[in-house]
């Protein structure tokens, strides 16, 4: 096996076939962002981060370090106290325009319990008054894509936690987003389901040409998925360190079992330990 004879990666080496950070256009540009909540909590302190087209970037950090806060600001759900955020080098107004769609996957599936799966998945299109005849093929595609093709008519309570999570990913797919924000989407799932969904996400990211910002507190998940990891520190929340994962995509079990993976995990753990102490 190649992976076992491979030497530990050089931080400056450019992996063949991997995305080229630096060369592509910024999708989200965060500069000197502070966030102070009403109760004086300094959730973010001078955060700088540029997310480029095709990046899969993980925000990794202990709970309470402002990961969700940062993601909510990027999603436009919350406003920075000071500093600047740019979307596709423009203001928030650009979000939602064709080719500038953004989607958000929450930690919980966040489905409407009173609606069947097809209606849940169709929601973003329904809200935009897209005709049913136009939206239904997209809904079926999305459900098939996440392996729920046979569950169109099911109510959320009839599905397992992993299936509900996949339904919420299908809902994100129908808008054909180019930027995908995920806040610990698989935190509540078992290891097996989580690994499978990680592979699904990587596949979609490649196929759809997404840019992903992925929040997690799992070192293993972050290393497996990302080409960049921003390690965040708490009190006040800030980006303490950035790691580049040079391993090429597609990644699979081979990568999970490689020394290279283990080495990256060690580095990320070390960075995490430093900020947690």
């Amino acid at each position: 096996m190649d992976a076992e004879t491979q030497t530990s990666p050089e931080p400056t080496a450019q992996a063949p076939g991997g995305p080229v950070p630096g060369g592509k256009r910024p999708v989200v540009d965060i500069s000197q962002v502070d966030k102070v909540y009403g109760n004086e909590t300094r959730a973010l302190d001078q955060v700088d981060l540029t997310v480029r087209e095709g990046d899969f970037i993980s925000l990794l950090g202990p709970s309470g370090c402002g990961k969700s806060t940062l993601l909510r600001i990027v999603a436009g759900l919350s406003k920075a106290t000071s500093g600047e955020v740019k979307w596709w080098e423009q203001d928030y107004g650009v979000v939602g325009q064709p080719g500038r769609e953004l989607c958000f996957v929450f930690q919980s599936p966040t489905l409407m319990p009173w609606a069947r799966l097809d209606k849940n998945v169709r929601l973003p299109l329904d809200l935009k008054h897209v005709k049913k005849s136009e939206s239904m093929p997209k809904v079926r595609d999305a459900l098939t894509m996440v392996g729920l093709g046979d569950f169109e008519g099911a109510y959320p309570r009839e599905l397992s936690g992993g299936m509900q999570m996949r339904a919420s990913i299908a809902r994100a797919l129908v808008t054909e987003p180019s930027l995908c924000l995920m806040d610990e989407p698989f935190g509540a799932l078992d290891e097996m389901t989580r690994n499978r969904l990680n592979d699904d996400i990587l596949r979609l990211w490649k196929e759809r040409g997404w840019t992903v910002i992925f929040v997690t507190h799992s070192v293993y998940e972050a290393v497996y998925l990302s080409n960049r990891i921003a390690v965040m520190a708490p009190r006040p929340g800030r980006i303490a360190e950035e790691l580049t994962i040079e391993a090429p995509y597609p990644r699979g079990n081979e990568f999970r079992n490689s020394d290279e993976y283990a080495e990256y995990c060690r580095r990320a753990s070390h960075a995490l330990e430093k900020v947690s102490s």
Partner: peptide, 17 residues
């Protein structure tokens, strides 16, 4: 559900929706 509300807001749902 506050997250469902966030989802609606992000999709620019009207007050009526």
């Amino acid at each position: 559900d506050p997250n469902l509300m966030n989802l609606f807001r992000m999709n620019r749902a009207s007050r009526w929706q």
